[in-house]
Design a protein around this nucleic acid. Sequence first.
DNA 1: CGCCTCGATGCGCTTTCCGCAACAATGCAG
DNA 2: CTGCATTGTTGCGGAAAGCGCATCGAGGCG
Lengths: 216, 216
Amino acid sequence: MAVGMAQDIGVSAAEPATERLGLRERKKRATRQSLHSEALRLVAERGFDEVTIEDIAAAADVSPRTFFNYFGSKEDVIVNPDPDRVERLRGLLAGDAADKPPLDVLESVLITSLDEVTDRREEWLLRLRLVREIPALTPRHLAAFDAMERVLIDDVAQRTGRDASADIYPVLVGSAAMAAMRAAIARWGAGDGRRPLPDLVREAFAALRTGLAVPS
Amino acid sequence: MAVGMAQDIGVSAAEPATERLGLRERKKRATRQSLHSEALRLVAERGFDEVTIEDIAAAADVSPRTFFNYFGSKEDVIVNPDPDRVERLRGLLAGDAADKPPLDVLESVLITSLDEVTDRREEWLLRLRLVREIPALTPRHLAAFDAMERVLIDDVAQRTGRDASADIYPVLVGSAAMAAMRAAIARWGAGDGRRPLPDLVREAFAALRTGLAVPS
DNA sequence: CGCCTCGATGCGCTTTCCGCAACAATGCAG
DNA sequence: CTGCATTGTTGCGGAAAGCGCATCGAGGCG
């Protein structure tokens, strides 16, 4: 029985495959997303210190204990909604051409990864505003970028056949690329997303390539 | 009255003025330093999770309540020993020549500020090791660099007459410079301080100026 | 249909973190 | 050197964070 019950399971790289994933997995994602959304909403409404984890759990209809199965802290639930971000980035890097200059690889991959941002544009803008306004969020926000930075560094090291723990070059390229990304995202957020994010990233990378000379 | 009572208060930029500072201030610094040192020692010996704030306070001979008058968390006491670091950096920047390219200013000022590192060389090496080994320290460690980065950015913005919240250039130069600094410090720490830190910083800035081209 | 896996939950405990109010030491002026 | 103002220390008490553990129930799968 159950012939034709699972309608189409071809994994196309295009769509995020969020549909046929098993009820369990879908519920988990929904719970995580719900916790994140409710946290954003509550903190935006009342302020960071006026929201407890119990509040957030209640708003997302789970027990406080469950909250901690998903996030390690109140900062986390605001700043770290997507647990797979780093792995996806690694995947993108692995799939990129081998003969381009390292900085070009990082630029194009990072721009590709921006889909995740523009897909949830409003959520990102709100989150960036909260990070700007709530100092307590800064450390973990930076840590999230740092995790991506490490992936970039490893990739550059491998690509150029250098040792990331002995040679400063991969570390520098990786961190500089991430700095460009951060700067672009910060600008985008501060400007309420008026300028397209990919443009800002390209502008930042262009400046890196000039050796950061003062532009006219 | 009180003629000739204050024996010389000329603030010479050379010595850190740690001597004539009033008993109160000296005690405060001693307490802070003691909390930091004991925390480093205990965590290095037992591991981060096996040390409580109560332990650290006891080792430094103060009450647990006093700990929180100095540091906001266990991560802080490890990673943030010096509360004036950012202000000193701002001072250095303010005192630097106005006609050099922004990147040159940042490089020379940051190198000057390295005295603080080499002065307490062993402490820094230990702290860097702990940061490498204990993931929980990463967020606040990054936040400390971020605070310096903001100062750099403000300086570049002012120096070039640009608006740091509308123009991406100051943000990018500031973050790239800080990335160079971080990379150099990380390398220095990972290599147990074998290569002189200023050399590493110069190497990193040189790479930035080439636009991060692959070195031969 | 029935077993197995795994996430949700409740419980209880330790630790963090901080406001508050007394107390003690320091700084300072007369 | 003496009294007053400042300011750091401490104890108290409490809210909240964070996590190990055992249990229960829903989902996966043959």
